[in-house]
Computed example of a mutant assay.
Amino acid sequence: MTPAAGLRQVAVLGATGSIGASALDVIARYPQRMRASVLAAGSNTGALLALCAAHRPDHAVIADPAGLAPLRDGLRAAGLATRAHAGDEALEALVAGPACDTVVAAIVGAAGLGSTLAAARAGKRLLLANKESLVLAGELVIAAARASGAEIVPIDSEHSAVFQCLRSCRAEGVRRLVLTASGGPFRGWDSARLATVTPAQAVAHPKWSMGPKISVDSATLMNKGLEVIEAHHLFGLAGDRIDVLVHPQSLVHALVEYVDGSTLAQLGLPDMRTALAVGLGWPERIDSGVAGLDLLAEGRLEFEAPDLAAFPCLRLAREALVAGGTAPAVLNAANEEAVSAFLQGRIGFLGIPALVEDTLAALPAAPAGSLEALLAADAEARRFARQHLPPMPSAGIRTA
């Protein structure tokens, strides 16, 4: 298929997730300006088919090769001309080729690195929600974007807020950045209470609608730690110039303090469509479908320091940033394995930071001059973490 002339052609990676849904909502509001040309999902073929019927992309990609035949058959049965693809190589080729000029990178975890790098190397406008790509290989992604002329517009709410306050990804005149955190569902809890947390409680975020992994990261404050590392790469500031404040209302998304004493803040309702509209329309402002902020109705804005004793993941992320090299890759890999184990019931909530800390201690930072070195560190960290997990829980035997 030949993309329609004059329309922004958008590849939505992670289309069946919450960020993908928000992106498609904004895209659908501007049929004369943009369209979803590529939709990609992990393994939910049915959900991807439903999105193809609604948005009629040129290409649909399922990460799991086992889903290719059902996807192809479903598209044919629906009378859609959308072409079916499967696997990382197919996705990276589409992202790098003429099928799109804009990429919404919303695949969760290290799995999103390949397509993010492909978009950066190909000079696309990259709407970046996959923070793990920058945690794992930030220097490589940023260097690729600079070499190709790719435009990175962050769409995490906090980094979008910084981007808007700076109006560009330059840090001249900036004294520090302040990222805000809601505090998650367990703000104010001590270690004794946190030891009782269940997966169902951890994924029930009080403010944001997110997938299980990101919700758990928010509950442990690892999400904020990853965002500190991401902000370091995006905006070129050292980690000691990037602060975090807990702000339970989730209305102030970030603040930028300048050397003259001025501080600019970006405020808005907690809805990802705002940041996505910034990325899709920049430098124009376009309607996102999100209502304006009524400060009188919202009432007070509160801020407090994060509790690093109860939530050590933020400390661990900062330590990995200072260590540099492969340490952030080890941090990210160990965290992904720990969160997966928690969601499976293999470890408790406090076992997440414990496993991450043990992995970082066992695998000291090494030079990270190539993608191969980073991927090797990622694999080694996953092996270590898995070897130090308890066995899968049995289904149990019912007795009379």
Rank of each mutant, 00 (worst) to 15 (best):
G17C: 12
Q344P: 10
L49A: 11
V197F: 04
S191C: 15
Q9S: 09
A329M: 05
A275H: 01
P306S: 00
E372W: 12
S148H: 02
I214S: 10
H85V: 04
A254E: 11
G325Q: 06
P31F: 07
Y258M: 06
A118C: 06
F311E: 00
G345E: 10
T82A: 14
A361E: 15
L128Y: 05
S115H: 03
Q164V: 13
A150W: 07
S43L: 11
G225Q: 08
Q201Y: 09
A333N: 12
T399E: 13
G279C: 11
V244A: 05
H55F: 08
H159V: 13
A54V: 07
P154Q: 06
V12L: 08
C52E: 02
L71V: 08
G325D: 04
V95A: 07
P328Y: 05
P98H: 14
G87Y: 09
A66F: 08
F163R: 03
G268H: 01
A60K: 03
A200L: 14
G225S: 14
A5Q: 15
R56G: 01
P212W: 02
C100V: 13
T196A: 06
A84R: 00
V228H: 04
G183V: 11
V141R: 03
L49R: 06
A320K: 00
G6R: 13
C100E: 08
A366Y: 08
E319V: 14
R285Y: 14
G279I: 03
V259K: 14
L316S: 09
G173A: 12
R382M: 07
G345N: 12
R175H: 13
A204Y: 08
A110C: 10
S22I: 04
L355K: 09
D64I: 04
G67M: 01
L245G: 15
E319R: 15
A143K: 15
V203A: 10
H59S: 10
A275N: 03
G239P: 02
M222H: 03
N130P: 07
R146T: 01
T2S: 04
H205D: 11
R193W: 02
S370W: 14
E92F: 05
A122E: 12
L251H: 12
S215Q: 10
L48M: 04
A90Q: 02
L255H: 10
L308S: 00
V330Q: 08
L179K: 12
A110P: 04
E337I: 13
R29M: 09
A28M: 15
G67T: 04
A297C: 01
A63S: 11
A341M: 10
A119N: 09
V339P: 01
S148W: 02
G261V: 07
R72F: 09
A333G: 15
G325N: 06
A147E: 15
L194H: 03
V26A: 02
R346I: 05
H85C: 06
E380K: 09
V38T: 04
P328L: 09
T263D: 02
